[in-house]
Simulated assay, not measured.
Amino acid sequence: MRRQKRDMSSRAYDRGYQAGVSGRSQDFCPHANEQQRYNWISGWREGRSDQWDGLTGVSGVHKLRAL
């Protein structure tokens, strides 16, 4: 659990992916740090792509990692 909390880059990517899949705007990125913002937006882009491809709900469960 502690390792996951310390890896902020991975958490930023995961949170961005979740925001993208849920349809939130890229403007809601909460990070000011350049590296974390980059990871969040990368996750957001992949999440949006998966949403457009129809990988939401049960069909997209395999893409999510346990948080």
Results as ranks from 00 to 15, higher is better:
Met1Arg: 06
Arg2Glu: 15
Arg2Asp: 14
Arg2Leu: 13
Lys5Met: 14
Lys5Gln: 12
Lys5Gly: 14
Lys5His: 14
Lys5Cys: 13
Arg6Gly: 15
Asp7Arg: 02
Asp7Leu: 01
Ser9Gly: 14
Ser9Gln: 14
Ser10Met: 08
Ala12Ser: 06
Ala12Lys: 03
Tyr13Trp: 11
Asp14Cys: 07
Asp14Trp: 00
Asp14His: 04
Asp14Val: 08
Arg15Ile: 06
Arg15Ser: 13
Arg15Cys: 09
Gly16Glu: 03
Gly16Thr: 02
Gln18Asn: 10
Gln18Trp: 06
Ala19Phe: 02
Ala19Cys: 00
Ala19Arg: 02
Gly20Gln: 02
Val21Cys: 00
Val21Arg: 04
Val21Trp: 03
Ser22Lys: 06
Ser22Ile: 05
Gly23Ile: 05
Gly23Ser: 02
Gly23Glu: 02
Gly23Lys: 02
Arg24Thr: 01
Arg24Ala: 09
Ser25Lys: 03
Ser25Asp: 08
Ser25Leu: 05
Ser25Gln: 04
Gln26Ala: 14
Asp27Glu: 10
Asp27Cys: 03
Phe28Ser: 12
Phe28Tyr: 13
Cys29Phe: 03
Cys29His: 01
Cys29Tyr: 00
Pro30Trp: 03
Pro30Glu: 00
Ala32Phe: 02
Ala32Val: 06
Ala32Gln: 07
Asn33Val: 05
Asn33Asp: 12
Asn33Pro: 00
Gln35Asn: 07
Gln35Glu: 11
Gln35Ser: 10
Gln35Lys: 08
Gln36Met: 12
Arg37Met: 10
Arg37Trp: 08
Tyr38Leu: 07
Asn39Cys: 11
Trp40Met: 01
Ile41Asn: 09
Ser42Tyr: 09
Gly43Pro: 04
Gly43Cys: 09
Trp44Ile: 06
Trp44Ser: 05
Arg45Asn: 15
Glu46Ile: 10
Glu46His: 12
Gly47Glu: 06
Gly47Asn: 05
Gly47Arg: 04
Arg48Trp: 04
Ser49Ile: 12
Asp50Leu: 07
Asp50Cys: 10
Gln51Phe: 11
Trp52Ala: 15
Trp52Glu: 15
Trp52His: 13
Asp53Lys: 13
Asp53Glu: 15
Asp53His: 13
Gly54Phe: 10
Gly54Asn: 11
Thr56Tyr: 00
Thr56Ala: 01
Thr56Pro: 02
Gly57Cys: 10
Gly57Leu: 08
Val58Cys: 13
Gly60Ser: 07
Val61Asp: 09
Val61Arg: 04
Val61Phe: 04
His62Val: 14
His62Glu: 15
Leu64Asn: 12
Ala66Asn: 14
Ala66Ile: 12
Leu67Tyr: 11
Leu67Thr: 10
